[in-house]
Simulated scan of single mutants.
Amino acid sequence: MSELREMIERVAQPGRLVWIGLRPGRRGAIRMVDAVEIGADGLAGDHGRAGKRAVTPFQDEHLAAVGSFLGRAPLDPALLRRNLVVAGINLSAFRGRCLRIGTVELCVTGVCAPCSRMEEALGPGGYAALRGHGGWCAEVRHPGRIALGDPVQAA
């Protein structure tokens, strides 16, 4: 394996799962939970999409950055309508790769770009503030159960 490849695959430390949110309906309120089953189609009780967008992880450290771009404190993750918030590990490093959270294995398929609804949720400039910080889309490779505090690491 090349030195560059080794560096790309190496992470400094495992992360941890710090927030789980379920979206029971398309524009319904987010329900925070401590644990959830994840099947092939995504989180149990969530209206999400099957396949490459089954799960939408978000980087905890970006909540402060996006809040700063808006002149505010770190954002409440429920405003962003993503499923999972992960801290302590760079999710960008997993694009095209798989990660494990609890007993679940997810493959990060690509960027979860912000939608126009972010202007409604965050106010003027919300869409622009999230560009490059909108989170990720992932498909479920191995279903299972996740809970707050679970480690997040390379699969």
Rank of each mutant, 00 (worst) to 15 (best):
E3M: 15
E3N: 14
L4F: 15
E6I: 15
M7D: 14
R10H: 14
Q13T: 08
Q13N: 10
Q13V: 05
Q13A: 11
G15M: 13
G15W: 13
R16P: 05
V18G: 07
W19Q: 05
G21I: 03
P24H: 06
M32I: 06
V33T: 08
V33R: 05
V33Y: 10
D34Y: 00
I38T: 01
I38K: 01
I38G: 00
G42P: 03
A44V: 06
D46C: 07
K52R: 14
R53V: 12
V55R: 13
T56N: 14
P57V: 15
Q59C: 14
D60S: 08
D60Y: 06
E61Q: 08
H62G: 02
A64D: 04
A64Y: 02
V66S: 01
V66W: 01
G67N: 00
G67P: 00
S68W: 04
S68A: 07
F69T: 08
L70F: 02
A73Y: 01
A73S: 05
P74R: 01
L75F: 01
L75W: 01
D76F: 02
P77Y: 03
N83Y: 07
L84G: 13
G88A: 12
I89V: 15
S92L: 13
S92I: 14
A93C: 13
A93R: 15
F94K: 09
R95D: 09
G96N: 06
G96T: 00
G96I: 00
R97I: 07
C98S: 08
L99A: 10
L99C: 08
L99V: 08
R100T: 07
I101V: 14
G102H: 11
T103N: 10
V104I: 08
V104T: 07
E105I: 09
C107K: 05
C107Q: 05
C107V: 01
T109L: 03
G110M: 07
V111N: 10
V111K: 08
V111W: 09
A113M: 10
A113L: 07
P114V: 04
C115A: 06
S116H: 10
